[in-house]
Design a protein around this nucleic acid. Structure first.
Lengths: 243, 243
DNA sequence: TCGACTTTGTGCAGGCGTTCACAAGCGGCT
DNA sequence: AGCCGCTTGTGAACGCCTGCACAAAGTCGA
């Protein structure tokens, strides 16, 4: 996880005590619920929603129980209510302002990614260190120079930063983001970032995922070779969907 | 999880018994080792490498112990040897052929992403269903029509497919990939894929990561509000780096 | 050659997450 | 009104992962 290994913090707040693993699945449930709502469903059972989200129904129910009791026994969950509750738990009732640093290949794509806007995030500004790129217009935004970062973050109440620079620039960008007041960073650069306590970092490493797939591919090839020479005969029953 | 929750498979093969959580970290170690090698380091201690990879040193040693005993007590690990062993474990001694389906905003960026090539993956072909896009030249490759998928996968021995299409097209693309013989899929479309047993799916959801950050941001804001009105006073000591 | 120091590899305990299985609760039908 | 069937919410068991702490094993210097 992934992921959740550190003890979750029992801080004061409505959503305290929600396990990290659950938090990571809430967006998936939310997406499935939106799809169900669009399809005209009014209520949904844990079994149906679990299938749509690709998880076990018991896990789903336990996840939802961390947010409260919003189901009706014998009936299921009201889709609209659940959308509202999960959105609230995830903090999506407000529209977060995000800055994106690095408008190279990947940064370009991220700037134009519709999924951000549709899920409650607003790209407040694009930055790059390359003077050549400053002023370029991408997805309705002018690319600004990284030196303007402090001002924009303060003016636009930005708390989330996205790093899409080359790896060798990522740490410096992270430092500047933190100094400007950003407290959450999504890092696409293939490197480990050092940040002070209180700053959350999540990383997305495109090549890393492929390398994990490579591991399993090799394993399949090995076992196919040792067990039986047929290529697609005995591959084992697995999925890795969960991340 | 992310991640590793299903029981790992004890299949016949050299790398059996490597926990999923360990597999997910091996690429990180590998990257750190490459950086150390470039910096001229010949050997490295578990403590040094752990810092570079952002993990606990005991965890690192236990991870490496799953691959075998490649360290020297009192000295550390030989960088070159470790690179070799991890590469072998991950199946990176061969160069995997990958097909990329969907050359929209994100697909474009992925096609040009240098990190794939530098880590042992070769993009064998680009595909799109839009006739408008077929023939377009991206990163030295001609975009082909999705109907050519079967032929290319067979000819080029492709076992890994990357989906970068809109969500509503992803399932059909996945079906066609599987039918063509692909056994590992990296899915960038924001939806859950149904695939037969024996096919591995990993998903990367850009908006999902932001939503997780949103959750923690809200929690910080809540606790800052309830504990003390100062904005950046008491944010709790956390990192989420691990994923 | 011997002793001191350094670092690996691992046994073990604790915590988190997943899953099973079932009691509790709600709606609908008679 | 009462019963039946369905679904939620959760107690409990199990397994994986993490991190501590230490013995084993190697190097370096005298």
């Amino acid at each position: 996880m992934s992921s959740g290994n550190r003890p979750r913090i029992r801080a004061a707040g409505r959503t305290r005590g929600v396990p990290e693993a659950t938090v990571a699945r809430l967006p998936v449930y939310l997406r499935a619920l939106h799809a169900l709502a669009d399809a005209g469903h009014d209520t949904v059972s844990s079994e149906e929603l679990a299938v749509a989200a690709g998880v076990n129904s018991a896990k789903l129910r336990k996840d939802l129980s961390h947010l409260g009791s919003y189901g009706t026994r014998g009936v299921g969950y009201e889709v609209a209510l659940l959308v509202d509750q999960i959105s609230r738990a995830l903090g999506l009732t407000q529209r977060w302002a995000v800055v994106l640093v690095g408008v190279g290949n990947l940064g370009h794509a991220l700037a134009g990614y519709a999924g951000f806007a549709s899920r409650g995030f607003r790209i407040a500004a694009l930055f790059d260190a390359d003077a050549e790129r400053v002023g370029e217009r991408i997805a309705g935004q002018d690319v600004r120079h990284i030196d303007d970062l402090d001002r924009v973050v303060a003016e636009e109440q930005v708390s989330i930063g996205v790093i899409a620079t080359p790896a060798d620039a990522a740490q410096e960008v992270a430092d500047r983001l933190v100094e400007a007041g950003v407290t959450s960073i999504l890092n696409f650069a293939p490197c480990v970032l050092q940040v002070p306590d209180g700053v959350d970092v999540r990383k997305v490493d495109l090549a890393l995922e492929l390398q994990i797939l490579s591991f399993h591919e090799q394993r399949k090839a090995d076992s196919a070779g040792t067990v039986t020479p047929l290529p697609a005969s005995h591959v084992d029953a697995r999925e890795v969907v969960g991340q």
